[in-house]
Simulated scan of single mutants.
Amino acid sequence: MSLKDRITDDMKAAMRAKDSERLTTIRGLLAAIKQKEVDERVVVDDVGVVAIVDKLIKQRKDSISQFNAGGRPDLAEKEQLELQILEPYLPQRMSAEEVQAAVSAIVSELGAAGPGDMGRVMAAVKAQLAGKADMGLVSGAVKRALNP
């Protein structure tokens, strides 16, 4: 079963259970998937769905920090609930040690040295680790690998 089918089944289950928060969040996710399919005239596969979920999670995290800074814990709590609903759709994330090892391997493979190669290394790392690791963690690992 594809990830998109699983999300659709979860939406149906949320409808049956009358779980309005879960239903709203999942509908938003499916709308984002459909929007990408319509805009780019493609059928989104599991990798594309993971990228969309990752983007939505990043938006939720940004919103939570903004709402907390603005003194709106009620809205931050709502975003946190949506974050918890979206996270199970991501694959198991790599640990910091695994990310560091993968980045080190890519840096040595590319023969990169110094901060000037950051863009080239990030492009290679992003292609290999997209959806598997938190890109903020990856960026930090690349910086450490290129700055001895």
Rank of each mutant, 00 (worst) to 15 (best):
M1P: 04
M1S: 14
T8L: 05
D9H: 10
D9M: 04
D10W: 02
D10F: 03
M11P: 00
M11V: 04
M11D: 01
K12C: 01
K18F: 09
K18C: 00
S20R: 07
R22P: 07
T24R: 09
T25M: 04
T25K: 08
T25W: 00
G28H: 08
G28V: 10
L29P: 02
L29D: 01
A31P: 06
A32N: 12
K34C: 00
K34W: 07
K34P: 01
Q35M: 13
E37Y: 01
D39T: 14
D39I: 13
D46E: 10
V47F: 15
V47H: 12
G48S: 05
V50T: 11
A51Q: 15
I52N: 00
V53P: 00
V53A: 00
D54E: 14
D54Y: 12
D54G: 15
K55V: 14
L56C: 06
L56P: 02
I57T: 03
K58E: 15
Q59S: 15
R60H: 05
R60S: 13
K61N: 12
K61V: 07
D62A: 10
D62Y: 10
D62L: 07
S63L: 15
S63K: 15
I64D: 03
Q66H: 09
G71W: 08
A76P: 09
A76F: 09
A76R: 09
E77G: 09
K78L: 09
E79Q: 09
E79C: 04
Q80P: 02
Q80E: 11
L81M: 13
L81Y: 11
E82T: 01
L83E: 05
L83F: 12
I85K: 01
L86N: 08
P88M: 09
L90C: 13
L90S: 05
P91D: 14
Q92P: 03
Q92C: 00
R93L: 11
S95I: 10
S95Q: 12
S95M: 10
A96G: 05
E97K: 12
E98V: 03
Q100A: 15
A102K: 03
A102Y: 03
S104L: 05
S104N: 15
S104H: 03
S104G: 12
A105H: 07
I106S: 01
V107G: 08
L110E: 00
A112M: 04
G114I: 02
G114P: 01
P115M: 14
G116H: 11
G116K: 13
G116S: 10
D117T: 10
D117P: 02
D117V: 11
D117K: 10
M118C: 06
G119L: 04
R120A: 07
A124N: 04
V125D: 06
K126H: 14
A127Y: 00
L129S: 07
K132M: 11
K132A: 08
A133S: 09
D134H: 13
L137I: 14
L137V: 14
L137A: 12
S139D: 04
S139H: 13
V142N: 03
R144M: 03
A145Q: 07
L146T: 03
P148R: 14
P148W: 11
